[in-house]
């Protein structure tokens, strides 16, 4: 646009900066509060500065099962991540050709994305109840999470293959590559950064998922359910320590994904 920054730019830049503060401020404030002193309260001011509430977190809690929930959520997120990448990739490959039912399947995926989550949770819960099956985090909750992560995975694959140049694959075929070889040596390396993106969505959306999990984890909790329970029962900053820990896990996963994408991109140059 124009060479000099006009008034409009500065007004919008300030608006953007305020939005970023609004976006990150609350999370940062609970991160600070999680370092409250042992006598510290749920609100500011800081009453000393300590790791007391983190130590408290690793001690056995009078209520709930933080360690168990944390371990379950990490394992579940890893399984969901793997399945989301695999199933979305296969479906993405399928959608490059015509197949009967493709439009219906696409609309089902979109419907799964926008359906109020609690409806899916009630349905899966009621199904297991009627069949007399036990609900566990690695069966019913896994399924519930996949209904949330797979639509994102599929949409990302659409975006990827919409921009994919089919000539590259045709060239491989012309040089004698089999279907599998052209996927393995041509398609996969090209779309690798996007697959990392799908993995990021799979892990984080599962790790933080609450509404679809609500009726389907059985007797035990995932981390978000544990947090919800603590939120209503706890009056100490231990919940902030847990929030800080969970957020750090998310940041670590995001950082790893972005770094992996950057490494792949730089190798290509």
């Amino acid at each position: 646009m124009e060479k000099r920054r006009g008034v409009e730019f500065w007004v919008l830049a300030v608006f953007f900066a305020l939005f970023v503060v609004f976006l990150y401020g609350p999370t940062l404030s609970i991160m600070v509060l999680s370092f409250q002193g042992p006598q510290g309260n749920l609100v500011f001011p800081m009453n000393g500065f300590s790791l007391h509430w983190f130590r408290e977190l690793f001690r056995d809690q009078p209520i709930g099962d933080i360690h168990g929930a944390f371990g379950r959520s990490i394992r579940l997120a890893l399984i969901v991540m793997g399945l989301t990448v695999l199933v979305s990739l296969l479906a993405g490959l399928a959608y490059r050709r015509h197949f009967i039912g493709s439009t219906a399947l696409f609309y089902i995926a979109v419907a799964s994305l926008i359906m109020p989550s609690i409806v899916i949770s009630i349905g899966i819960g009621a199904g297991y109840e009627l069949l007399g099956w036990t609900r566990t985090w690695y069966t019913s909750a896994l399924g519930a999470h996949l209904t949330w992560t797979l639509p994102f995975g599929l949409l990302i694959m659409f975006a990827v293959f919409n921009r994919f140049n089919p000539a590259l694959e045709e060239a491989a075929r012309d040089l004698g590559a089999t279907g599998w070889q052209s996927v393995r040596h041509v398609v996969l390396p090209i779309i690798a950064p996007s697959l990392i993106g799908v993995a990021l969505f799979g892990f984080t959306l599962s790790f933080d998922e609450l509404p679809r999990s609500s009726q389907v984890t059985g007797d035990v909790n995932t981390m978000p359910k544990e947090l919800q329970a603590l939120q209503t029962n706890t009056v100490t900053p231990v919940i902030y320590a847990l929030g800080t820990l969970t957020t750090l896990v998310s940041f670590a996963v995001i950082g790893l994904s972005l770094a992996a994408v950057a490494v792949i991109r730089s190798r290509r140059r």
């Binding site: 199933v87 197949f99 493709s102 399947l105 409806v119 399924g143 996949l146 209904t147």
Partner: peptide, 27 residues
Amino acid sequence: VPYFQAAPLALIFLAFFVTPVLLVGAV
């Protein structure tokens, strides 16, 4: 080939989305 590739997605949605939602209607 596309049918085999799309099958896992379709089966997961059938088991954990379409059936449960219909079940909510029944329940």
